[in-house]
Design a protein around this nucleic acid. Structure first.
Length: 694
DNA sequence: CTTAGGG
DNA sequence: CCCTAAG
């Protein structure tokens, strides 16, 4: 037996095509396929849910109370939020609302405030609810025209009120009748709101930077550039993990990639390499997760009319949302490649309780404050009207009736993986090992996270519009992340017997991973690399691994920064570990036989013959606990096959011809023996047959 | 639990 | 490497 050096690779999240591919063998396995598909479907459900919610506008919970469990977590998560918050651009969105026949109003909401902590979440301004009854539950409440709302800003992790009476002007968009509006942002009693009122304007378009920047505190932008800003096809990018000092917070391990909604084929989408997660999140939410292939589709046409429709809790995956099934079916039927523009969710919503969206696409509902109990309206939606023009092509914020959101998920980023593989392993085996790791992760259960501008959107009750996904998409970068399912215990992917290596469990000091090996520094490599088939021919260059053999035994593809182990992590992991075993049976990691092992195997078989695998195991592989007699049998089977095919057809680590010859010899010998055995028994059985007992 | 063989 | 029938 040869002790082999091993290479430790730390993958800090790399990307794979939206549609996970299984290895050939894995694909063949029905169970695996089922599992993956199950995951796909589930994840898809999530997205479908989002879309469904959008369309339905049904809300089950108030935004203020709609905090996902992780958000309520420990300090770690909180600090994370802070940092994250710094990064986010506190974009202000202008929405149009209408008070029945009264003046139309526009609301400006501070998106940034919504996505985070409860503390930062929007709250309804009390006292004005009586003024309006119609249905659009806007995040912001506005009563009369003179009302001012304060805004709350966060700078350097702190909430600061810096926007006292900050006036801003918002210009109406194209389709609008062009009115300009003055917007006052004052520091009111409730600093969490920003209210911008516009006067009689049909529409308002917040060109990127416009409404936002104006209201925004420049300081924020300067200090911390947005993670990613992308407008239409141009991708300006990103801060990647390297640039983010706070790239190791536990809360989001998504290195997601991004999506853009324009139709531009060349659009490079956007990548949010932003944070490199070192740990897996713990937030079991979805049972089986599935990501529909639809995710890989290039376009998404969702929600005909997003206006005023709200997303309800994304986490709430229970099949309670309306239209879910319909959406599901539709998506399912449209999951074929190649990508085509598709319209999902042709939707007919429930009638609005009072005041819906008029046919002209402009909201006519009464503005109303958000009241948990009161939210029951389901804005009338217009079915897809066939306007296929890209949203990106329409700068207007409020597109009359066809405010579809088109999404294209170019790729997903897979959470960090650790791989350990013998130094003698072939590149091919390394690829396969990584593939296994990836597929294991994918098959282990994932959940989907939604990010905008690199920030996680935690408030699932927000509508796409409110979140900025629907309007003026050019400046918004929507991302979806695949996040490890907490209930699944991540496995280490090491061919050897090395102990489980899990980031959270055993944070590795940076020194252990000399920078000699690294993944291409490219922060935002859109696709994973050659070992994964890409759905896109134009897939960017694959991630490269450069391994310097002169170096230490332990090498990392990515220098793994010491991840502060959060209390949460330490506590959660063990728990989940238990969980997992009982729930999901993880496929064993593929561990190619080394030449040395083959040697031993051949030797044993020569002596014991085929058919005595248990003995072979005990005799030659007793110490190799990961080699079962079935494995040995299987290996022998493949060895025989390998020996029979031409060298050119062989794959993986080449086995010396000498060994293969012995394999054939031994196989022939024992086969013959077996045949003889049967011949001996044959007569007997024949005799028995000939002399049936009367 | 082992074998054997298909997947 | 998985799954399973069969002994």
């Amino acid at each position: 037996m040869v002790l082999q050096k091993r290479l430790d690779y730390g993958f800090s999240g790399y990307q794979v095509p939206a549609t996970p591919r299984a290895t050939r063998s894995a694909r063949k396995r029905g169970s695996f396929k089922k599992r993956v598909e199950a995951n796909q479907i589930c994840a898809f459900d999530l997205l479908a849910t989002v879309a469904g919610k959008l369309l339905c506008g049904k809300e089950s919970r108030p935004s203020s109370s709609n905090m996902s469990s992780e958000e309520n977590k420990p300090a770690v998560a909180k600090s994370t939020v802070k940092e994250e918050r710094q990064e986010e651009d506190q974009e202000l969105k202008v929405e149009t609302c209408d008070q029945g026949s009264c003046d139309k109003k526009f609301l400006v909401s501070e998106l940034a405030s919504q996505a985070y902590d409860q503390d930062y979440s929007f709250r309804i301004l009390p006292g004005h609810q009586d003024d309006y009854h119609s249905g659009f539950a806007s995040i912001i409440t506005s009563s009369d025209s003179s009302e001012r709302v304060g805004s709350q800003k966060l700078v350097k992790g702190k909430i600061e009120n810096e926007m006292d009476s900050l006036p801003c002007k918002v210009e109406s968009g194209p389709a609008a009748n062009g009115g300009s509006v003055d917007c006052n942002i004052s520091n009111d009693e409730d600093k969490r709101f920003v209210n911008c009122e516009l006067e009689k304007t049909g529409k308002v378009s917040t060109e990127e930077g416009t409404g936002v920047s104006h209201v925004e505190d420049p300081v924020v932008w300067n200090e911390k550039p947005p993670v990613l800003v992308s407008s239409d096809s141009s991708t300006k990018v990103p801060l990647c993990g390297d640039q983010n000092p706070h790239s190791s917070f536990p809360a989001s391990l998504d290195n997601v990639n991004l999506v853009s909604k324009d139709d531009d084929e060349n659009s490079s989408g956007c990548t949010h390499p932003s944070t490199i997660q070192k740990s897996f999140r713990a937030t079991p939410r979805i049972g089986a997760r599935r990501i529909r292939k639809i995710l890989a589709s290039k376009y998404w046409k969702v929600a005909p009319k997003l206006k005023d429709v709200r997303l309800s809790n994304l986490e709430d995956l229970r099949p309670s949302y309306c239209e879910r099934n319909n959406s599901y079916k539709r998506l399912r039927s449209e999951r074929n490649y190649p990508f085509k523009k598709r319209k999902f969710f042709h939707y007919t919503s429930l009638p609005n309780s009072d005041g819906g969206i008029s046919s002209d696409g402009i909201a006519h509902s009464h503005q109303r404050s958000i009241d948990v109990d009161a939210i029951d309206s389901c804005p009338k939606m217009h079915g897809a009207t066939g306007d296929s023009s890209s949203v990106a092509d329409q700068p207007r914020l409020f597109h009359p009736r066809d405010s579809h959101v088109k999404l294209r998920i170019k790729s997903f980023r897979v959470p960090e993986l650790f791989i350990e593989i013998p130094e003698t392993a072939t590149v091919g085996s390394l690829k396969r090992t990584v593939m296994e790791a990836v597929t294991s992760i994918l098959g282990g259960g994932l959940r989907v996270g939604v990010l905008i501008q690199g920030k996680k959107v935690r408030d699932d009750n927000k509508t796409l519009q409110q979140t900025g996904i629907c309007c003026d998409s050019q400046s918004d970068v929507l991302g979806f992340s695949l996040e490890p399912n907490p209930s699944q215990t991540p496995l280490s992917f090491c061919p050897g017997d090395s102990p489980l290596m899990f980031p959270r469990d055993t944070p590795q000091p940076p020194t252990r991973y000399p920078a000699t090996c690294h993944v291409s520094p490219e922060p935002h490599v859109p696709n994973i690399g050659s070992f994964v088939e890409s759905d896109h021919d134009s897939a960017p260059s694959p991630t490269e691994m450069s391994i310097d053999k002169s170096t230490t035994d332990s090498k990392a593809l990515v220098a793994v920064p010491a991840v502060p182990v959060s209390v949460e992590a330490l506590v959660v992991v063990p728990v989940h570990r238990k969980f997992k075993r009982s729930e999901v049976v993880q496929r064993r990691i593929r561990r190619p036989f080394s030449v040395a092992e083959v040697e031993v195997l051949v030797q044993a078989v020569e002596k014991l013959g085929t058919g005595r695998w248990r003995d072979v195991k005990l005799r030659a592989f007793d110490n190799a606990k990961h080699r079962t007699y079935v494995d040995l049998k299987d290996k022998w089977k493949t060895l025989v096959h390998t020996a029979r095919i031409s060298p050119q057809q062989r794959r993986g680590e080449p086995v010396p011809q000498e060994l293969l010859d012995r394999v054939l010899t031994a196989h022939a010998h024992w086969s013959q023996q077996q045949a003889k055995q049967q011949l001996k028994q044959q007569p007997e059985s024949c005799l028995l047959l000939q002399n049936p007992v009367t």
